[in-house]
Simulated assay, not measured.
Amino acid sequence: MANALVSVQILPKPAHGEDVIPFVDEAIRIIQESGVKHQVQPLDTVMEGEMDELLAIVSKMNKRMMELGCKNVITQVKVLYQPEGITLETLTEKYR
Protein backbone atom coordinates (compact mmCIF):
# COMPACT_ATOMS: atom_id res chain seq x y z
CA MET A 1 0.00 0.00 0.00
CA ALA A 2 1.14 3.55 -0.72
CA ASN A 3 2.63 5.49 2.16
CA ALA A 4 2.28 9.01 0.76
CA LEU A 5 0.14 11.46 -1.13
CA VAL A 6 2.01 14.27 -2.85
CA SER A 7 0.28 17.31 -4.29
CA VAL A 8 2.42 19.14 -6.84
CA GLN A 9 1.88 22.42 -8.65
CA ILE A 10 4.60 23.44 -11.09
CA LEU A 11 5.03 27.04 -12.22
CA PRO A 12 7.68 27.18 -14.95
CA LYS A 13 9.12 30.45 -16.23
CA PRO A 14 9.84 29.96 -19.93
CA ALA A 15 12.94 31.78 -21.16
CA HIS A 16 11.13 33.73 -23.87
CA GLY A 17 7.79 34.36 -22.20
CA GLU A 18 6.01 31.52 -23.94
CA ASP A 19 2.69 30.15 -22.74
CA VAL A 20 3.29 27.92 -19.70
CA ILE A 21 0.58 25.38 -20.55
CA PRO A 22 2.78 23.22 -22.85
CA PHE A 23 5.38 23.09 -20.07
CA VAL A 24 2.77 22.07 -17.49
CA ASP A 25 1.51 19.45 -19.95
CA GLU A 26 5.04 18.06 -20.15
CA ALA A 27 5.26 17.89 -16.35
CA ILE A 28 1.95 15.99 -16.24
CA ARG A 29 3.24 13.65 -18.96
CA ILE A 30 6.16 12.76 -16.68
CA ILE A 31 3.71 11.84 -13.93
CA GLN A 32 1.57 9.82 -16.32
CA GLU A 33 4.54 7.91 -17.69
CA SER A 34 5.76 7.11 -14.17
CA GLY A 35 2.80 4.79 -13.72
CA VAL A 36 1.88 6.09 -10.26
CA LYS A 37 -1.76 6.58 -9.40
CA HIS A 38 -2.63 10.26 -9.76
CA GLN A 39 -5.42 12.78 -10.24
CA VAL A 40 -4.96 15.86 -12.38
CA GLN A 41 -6.93 18.75 -10.90
CA PRO A 42 -7.35 22.36 -12.03
CA LEU A 43 -4.58 23.77 -9.82
CA ASP A 44 -2.39 20.78 -9.01
CA THR A 45 -1.89 17.07 -9.48
CA VAL A 46 -2.03 14.63 -6.58
CA MET A 47 0.05 11.45 -6.74
CA GLU A 48 -0.25 8.31 -4.60
CA GLY A 49 2.68 6.02 -3.91
CA GLU A 50 5.91 5.61 -2.01
CA MET A 51 7.24 8.96 -0.79
CA ASP A 52 10.75 8.52 -2.21
CA GLU A 53 9.39 7.60 -5.64
CA LEU A 54 6.96 10.52 -5.69
CA LEU A 55 9.63 13.04 -4.69
CA ALA A 56 11.90 11.65 -7.41
CA ILE A 57 9.12 12.36 -9.93
CA VAL A 58 8.92 15.95 -8.67
CA SER A 59 12.67 16.27 -9.15
CA LYS A 60 12.43 14.87 -12.68
CA MET A 61 9.68 17.38 -13.52
CA ASN A 62 11.84 20.30 -12.40
CA LYS A 63 14.89 19.08 -14.32
CA ARG A 64 12.79 18.63 -17.45
CA MET A 65 11.66 22.26 -17.27
CA MET A 66 15.31 23.32 -17.35
CA GLU A 67 15.98 21.00 -20.31
CA LEU A 68 13.13 22.72 -22.15
CA GLY A 69 14.79 26.11 -21.61
CA CYS A 70 12.96 27.57 -18.64
CA LYS A 71 14.79 30.27 -16.67
CA ASN A 72 13.50 28.77 -13.43
CA VAL A 73 10.58 26.90 -11.96
CA ILE A 74 8.65 27.27 -8.75
CA THR A 75 7.19 24.03 -7.48
CA GLN A 76 4.71 23.88 -4.63
CA VAL A 77 4.56 20.51 -2.93
CA LYS A 78 2.39 19.15 -0.14
CA VAL A 79 3.16 15.75 1.33
CA LEU A 80 1.00 13.50 3.47
CA TYR A 81 3.26 10.74 4.77
CA GLN A 82 1.49 7.89 6.53
CA PRO A 83 3.66 4.76 6.89
CA GLU A 84 0.70 2.49 7.67
CA GLY A 85 -0.81 3.39 4.28
CA ILE A 86 -2.86 6.06 2.55
CA THR A 87 -4.87 6.33 -0.66
CA LEU A 88 -6.44 9.19 -2.59
CA GLU A 89 -9.85 7.76 -1.77
CA THR A 90 -9.17 7.75 1.97
CA LEU A 91 -9.42 11.54 2.04
CA THR A 92 -12.07 12.11 -0.62
CA GLU A 93 -14.51 9.20 -0.60
CA LYS A 94 -17.06 10.98 1.61
CA TYR A 95 -17.31 13.77 -0.99
CA ARG A 96 -17.83 11.54 -4.03
Rank of each mutant, 00 (worst) to 15 (best):
E33I: 04
I86G: 11
I31M: 04
V40H: 06
I86T: 10
V36F: 02
P12D: 06
G69H: 14
K63T: 00
T90P: 10
M47V: 07
T92I: 13
P42C: 12
S34F: 00
I28F: 00
H38C: 09
V77G: 00
K63Q: 04
D52Q: 14
K37G: 11
T92M: 08
D44C: 07
L80M: 04
K71C: 13
M47R: 05
I57S: 07
V20R: 07
I28Y: 02
S34R: 04
P14C: 15
M47Y: 04
K78C: 04
D52T: 11
M47Q: 03
I30M: 05
V79Y: 01
M51G: 12
P83S: 08
D44Y: 07
P83K: 07
A56S: 15
D52K: 13
E48T: 08
T45C: 08
Q41C: 13
Q82C: 13
R29M: 04
E48C: 10
E67H: 01
P22W: 10
N62V: 03
E50R: 15
M65I: 01
N62H: 05
V8L: 01
K78G: 01
D25C: 10
E84K: 14
G35I: 03
Q39V: 03
L80F: 02
K71I: 14
E48H: 06
V46Y: 09
S59T: 11
A27M: 01
V8S: 02
A27V: 00
N62F: 02
V79P: 04
N72H: 08
M61K: 02
C70Q: 14
Q82A: 11
V46R: 10
L54T: 05
V58Q: 01
H38Y: 05
V73F: 04
L54M: 08
I57H: 03
V58I: 06
V24M: 05
